[in-house]
Each structure stands twice: as structure tokens, then as C-alpha cells.
């Protein structure tokens, strides 16, 4: 597997991570932060998958699978928090 492909992929993912992190910290409202958190979960899944390819260890696919399954729970939780009248500040 050409290493430059992996490096570029990692670079793109890290860039996306940094951008969504800025949104997470800056995000004026809570939903903005949650959206950023969702994207970070996705980035982490992709990162782990690419890393699995990079070090040629298929075992990490399970980690990505679990993350894909449960990553979105944060959004559901925060949504319930807001709908129930939680205080966004």
C-alpha cells in the first residue's frame, strides 16, 4: 500500500478534525457543538480504519464498528437534553 496515500488520508482527516474541533469550541449554540462532535466520531472511525490498513491489522475494524454503532448516541442524548428544556448554557 503506497505510504503517501495513507499519509495524505491521515492529513485530510487531521485537518477535518482540527476544523470540527474549532467549531466544537466556538460553536455558538449547543447543536453546533453536537454536530461537530458527530463529525469527530465519524473522523475517528475513518482514522481507525485507515490505520488498520496502514499497519495491516484487521482487528481494529471491530473498534471502528463499535464506534460507528454507538457514536451517534451523544447526539441523541443532547437532543433529548434540549427538548426536555435543559439549559443550554
Amino acid at each position: 500500500m503506497a505510504s503517501w496515500v495513507i499519509s495524505i488520508a491521515f492529513l485530510l482527516l487531521i485537518a477535518a478534525l482540527v476544523l470540527s474541533f474549532i467549531r466544537l469550541v466556538q460553536g455558538p449554540s449547543l447543536p453546533d457543538r453536537v454536530i461537530a462532535l458527530e463529525l469527530i466520531a465519524l473522523i475517528t472511525t475513518a482514522f481507525i480504519l485507515v490505520y488498520a490498513v496502514a499497519v495491516d491489522v484487521p482487528a481494529f475494524i471491530d473498534v471502528a464498528l463499535v464506534l460507528a454503532l454507538t457514536g451517534f448516541m451523544a447526539a441523541i442524548g443532547f437532543a433529548r437534553f434540549l427538548e426536555r428544556g435543559g439549559n443550554p448554557k
Binding site: A59, D62, V63, V66, L69, T70, M73, I76, G77, R80
Partner: peptide, 21 residues
């Protein structure tokens, strides 16, 4: 392989938490 009682327990708890939400 990676897994075990503890992690499985957590996964199923998250599943029921989702159902609760």
C-alpha cells in the same frame, strides 16, 4: 478476539439507553 463481558455489557446498556431516549 477483542471483546469480553465488560465491553459487551456496555454495548447492550447503550442499546437500552437508546431505546430509553
Amino acid at each position: 478476539e477483542p471483546g469480553g463481558g465488560f465491553i459487551a455489557g456496555l454495548v447492550v446498556s447503550v442499546a437500552f439507553a437508546l431505546y430509553l431516549f
